[in-house]
């Protein structure tokens, strides 16, 4: 198989990094994706991912004029976290206008980013951010992904019962002394971080699909929160790795290849469940 052969070639380091980051990010994807799907905050996640572009634009501009340390990654993190916290606070304190605020934040942060990109001199590969550029991954992203996985996995293992109670029944969790708001905002920050990291793999536009599809597929086959997280981690890993191999083999853009595969499996899962219920 030419893929395996190419994978071993020294000059193909980017391919190894892409596969490694893709496989490693499945832990973050599976856990965060499950939270996004079960808490029904995928529009919040959508706003968060697009808001990252606002941060990226501002960071590129600032990097050029004054602050050399202000990398697009730093900008994306600031953009995504600020958007997640604003939308999360609105979700918590003013439910009735939630969808409006989500769309305002979504559009406003993106527009700010595009304005800054306009003022930035020279060529900016903004398409790379929208659709992902897996060729640009380096060892740094491998370490960042491992760090993010631990940042998500360790609190999840420690506070699983509190997180489960809060996700299932907010009021009851509050009555039992769970610090619901601390957990909620921590989850929002972790979701934003996961989204920023995954933008490298599939881009801003497709990150929500990769976050929600494996979890939604896993949801119809599991009856515990932890098993849903585990299965969606396995599925994410499979989708990313198989999608990357297919995109390399058939010369396809990697992001869409991964998302089409994930969608196909999700639809097949829905069909299988409908068939199983009829029997």
């Amino acid at each position: 198989m030419s893929f395996l052969h190419d994978l071993m070639r020294p000059e193909m380091a980017f391919l190894r990094y892409a596969l490694l980051v893709g496989a490693l990010s499945s832990v973050a994807l599976g856990i965060v994706g499950t939270m996004v799907v079960t808490r029904r905050i995928s529009s919040l996640a959508g706003a968060t991912s697009h808001a990252a572009l606002g941060g990226i634009g501002a960071a590129l501009f600032l990097q050029q004029i004054a602050l050399p340390w202000c990398s697009p990654m730093v900008g994306a993190i600031v953009g995504a976290i600020s958007a997640a916290l604003v939308v999360g606070a609105v979700n918590l304190y003013a439910r009735e206008r939630e969808d409006t605020i989500i769309n305002v934040v979504w559009a406003l942060w993106m527009s700010i980013g595009l304005l800054f990109l306009n003022w930035t001199h020279g060529y900016v590969d903004w398409q790379g951010y929208l659709f992902g550029n897996i060729l640009l991954l380096t060892q740094t992203e491998v370490y960042l992904t491992i760090g993010l996985d631990l940042l998500i996995l360790v609190p999840m293992l420690l506070f699983y019962n509190s997180i489960l109670t809060m996700s299932f029944d907010w009021t009851f969790a509050e009555l039992r002394g769970v610090r619901v708001k601390v957990i909620y905002f921590s989850l929002l920050i972790l979701t934003a971080l996961a989204i920023v990291l995954l933008i490298n793999v599939v881009g801003i536009i497709l990150v929500i699909a990769l976050l929600t599809l494996p979890a939604a597929t896993a949801g119809s086959f599991t009856r515990h929160l932890w098993s849903m997280m585990l299965l969606s981690t396995i599925l994410s890993g499979l989708f990313v790795v198989v999608g990357l191999i297919a995109s390399y083999q058939f010369n396809l853009p990697s992001g869409p290849a991964i998302v089409v595969l994930a969608s196909a499996v999700y639809l097949a899962g829905l069909g299988f469940n409908a068939w199983r219920k009829r029997c």
Binding site: T38, L164, T165, F168, D169, R223
Partner: peptide, 18 residues
């Protein structure tokens, strides 16, 4: 929501700082 009956009832045993 993916949760079993036992897991729901155990939520009643949740304690502060636990």
């Amino acid at each position: 929501f993916p949760v079993t009956v036992l897991e729901v009832v155990l939520m009643g045993r949740m304690h502060r700082g636990f």
